[in-house]
Every structure is written in structure tokens, then in C-alpha cells.
Write a protein that binds this DNA or RNA. Structure first.
Lengths: 187, 187
DNA sequence: CTTCACTATGTCAGTTCTTACATAGATGTA
DNA sequence: TACATCTATGTAAGAACTGACATAGTGAAG
């Protein structure tokens, strides 16, 4: 019957529930710090928007665009909002856990400690950078204390996860660097 | 030229660097707590083993198997070990961050708080379960203090990441439940 | 004045991966 | 005895996704 909507479809609906957007804007919003947890290329977003449109979960109005095509401003429909609301509380299906840095760590015993330290230092810098970003955003969102029922609540909750994730990650990288350093000078 | 090896290929090599295994066993080992960070279905593993074989990174010997085909015991070759060693310290490419629970959180403001609390309680129980598993494994690995250069070091380092990840996750779930609870009784 | 980045849509080829199917012996359970 | 589960390999269809290509206006930097 109704073709199942992939998770990316719900990610798109989640963005449109906040503001009407073009496909291009949706891709941009999903690259934004507080919504970085389900990204996709614009080509895939266009494909999925088409499917959501066929299912009646989104609609659009056109406006003159920069390229040869007209620009399409998508918005979520009542049916789309219903589908999104229903999906939100369904238990998330177990995901394939995939983490390249941890995989490399699993095989780290084969490699050169000094090179590994360099790699983890780079990773640490990235995590610390994002952590600083998130902490700045957190300061302003905590002050505001957004109420449940507003989209700001969703932003805050997702941001909180990103914040503690980066903290955990940075801590782990520091621990790795420590371990690898002490393996260099066994003294 | 030399066809690029997908990340799953290196995950397979990482397992074979520890012990010779059949394709079936590789899938099982990747479902094991300390190597849960790059899982795949056996059909994909068979496909990738074929490619690794064509590239000369693995070899195999046969033994009588249960089914109609013979069982193949794969082992990593010297070339495979070289390729793995080289890959380990290359900077990991930025991955698509995908997390269904956080996506649902991002859209949580649209849903029923009570249903959300139930969902997060389920997630919390899962994280706490894995945390207990990891903590038990950690106790024994810490005692042993495996040296760099042995595969146990890789196990320990990956386990450490899993441990602090589950801790962060469980903390966040508890925070979410708190937030949602206080939105129910505004007192 | 040229070049680059940004906005904006879309196609297409190819890769990665999942799910279901197919086969079949051994082992344990009801 | 019957049935499920584990071991073990593989195929095949299709979903999901990436990256390159194609087009084209605006605005900023050099």
C-alpha cells in the first residue's frame, strides 16, 4: 500500500515543520550544527521530496529561481504533520553502528603510535571546535528555556545531545593520546 | 586503477588480522560488543571478501562445510596487512552523521510527552544494559593492561569509546526524561 | 574584468547495503 | 519425532545514497 517513507523523508519533514524551504535550503539546514544528525546530498533530497509530494505529505509554490528551472518552496501538509507526529514516538529501529575512527582504533595496534597520536590530535581539535560552538549555542538556549510544544524545544534537546557527545568524544581522544604517548616512552 | 576498498573491507581485514575466520564468523565477530562499530549483513561480507580476494589482500583454505558449498577459512595476506596498516593512520573521512533517536528528538516538540517519555525510557534501558556489559569487560581488561602492539590494545581502546559513549547516551536520555516530565506537571 | 562562491534545480551512473530466497548438515529441545 | 537454531555459502532484486555533470543568475573579491 502506501510506500514506506525512508528516514530521510522524516528528516525533511522535520525541517519543513519549522519553516517552508526550497530543497537547497533543506540541505543547508541539515548541515547546520543543531540539525547535523541526518545529512544528505541535495540530489537525494530532491528525489525524496518528489516522493513526499506523490504521497501528499508536502506541497509547494513556485517562485522565479536563479537557474533554468523555477524555484520551489516546499511546505508540509496536514497529512505530513500527522505522519511526522506518528513517527516521532515509534521506537527507532536498531541502526547499523558505523564509526570509522573507532574502527581504525580497533586496528590501531598494527600501526605507528606517533602517526596515531597525530590522527587523534586532529580529531580532538575537531571535537573541541564543535564543542565550543555547541557550548556557545547552549548558553543562549538555556537562558531562553524554550517551552515544550515549540520548535525551540527540539533544537535545545538535539543540541544537548550534540554537546554531551562532543564532550565524550573529546575526552576519549585525550585518553587515546595519553595511552599512545605512554606507549612511546615506556620508562 | 586498483579499485578502492570500501570501509567494510578494512573492517573485515581488522577482524582477520586477529584470527582466520569464515565469512559467517566475521559477521558474528562484528556483532560482538567490542567490535560493534561497523556491522554488516553476511551477504555483504561475502561480496566484499570476494573483492579482497581479487585484490590479493586475503586468501583462503577450504574445509567441509555444513551446506552444499565448502566452508572457506579466510586469512589476511602480507599485502592485506600492509594495506590495513597504511589505512589505519589515514585521517578518517567525514561521515554522514545519522542518528534516528536524535532526529526524533528534533521533532519531539510535535508529539505527546508521555509517549516520548516511554520511548526514552526504553532507549535508556538499552544503553544501561550495554553500559553494564562494557563495564564488566572493562574491569577485566584494565587489570590486564594490554600492551600496544597486541590486538588486546585495540580491543581495550575501542571498548573505552563504547563505554563512555553509552555513559553519555544514558545521561542524555535521563536528561530528556527529566525535561519531558517537568513539561507534564508544570506545577 | 574575471573569477569565485552562492543560490537553485535536476539527471545519471555507479556503489553500498539490506532483505528475502535457496540449500543443507548438525545439534538441541519439546 | 518434529521443529527450531546454529553453522555455512551464495544469488538476486531493489532501496538508499554519493558524486559528477549540466544550467544559469547574482554578488563579492581580487
Amino acid at each position: 500500500m502506501s510506500s514506506t517513507i525512508p528516514t530521510l523523508g522524516f528528516a525533511i519533514l522535520s525541517v519543513l515543520a519549522r519553516a517552508d524551504s526550497t530543497g537547497y535550503e533543506i540541505a543547508g539546514r541539515m548541515r547546520n550544527p543543531v540539525a547535523r544528525f541526518w545529512t544528505a546530498s541535495h540530489s537525494q533530497i530532491h528525489a525524496d521530496l518528489r516522493r513526499l509530494l506523490d504521497s501528499g505529505l508536502v506541497g509547494y509554490t513556485t517562485a522565479p529561481g536563479p537557474g533554468p528551472q523555477e524555484k520551489k518552496i516546499y511546505s508540509i501538509t496536514a497529512e505530513g504533520l500527522d505522519a511526522l507526529r506518528e513517527w516521532v514516538t515509534e521506537p527507532p529501529r536498531p541502526q547499523p553502528e558505523r564509526d570509522e575512527l573507532v574502527l581504525k582504533t580497533y586496528a590501531a595496534w598494527l600501526a605507528d603510535p606517533a602517526a596515531l597520536i597525530a590522527m587523534f590530535r586532529t580529531a580532538l581539535r575537531e571535537h573541541e571546535g564543535r564543542l565550543a560552538e555547541y557550548e556557545a549555542a547552549w548558553a543562549s538556549v538555556e537562558e531562553e528555556a524554550p517551552a515544550f510544544g515549540t520548535s525551540r524545544f527540539g533544537n535545545m534537546a538535539a543540541l544537548r545531545c550534540g554537546l554531551t557527545y562532543e564532550r565524550h568524544r573529546a575526552d576519549w581522544c585525550r585518553w587515546m593520546i595519553d595511552q599512545l604517548s605512554s606507549s612511546l616512552k615506556p620508562s
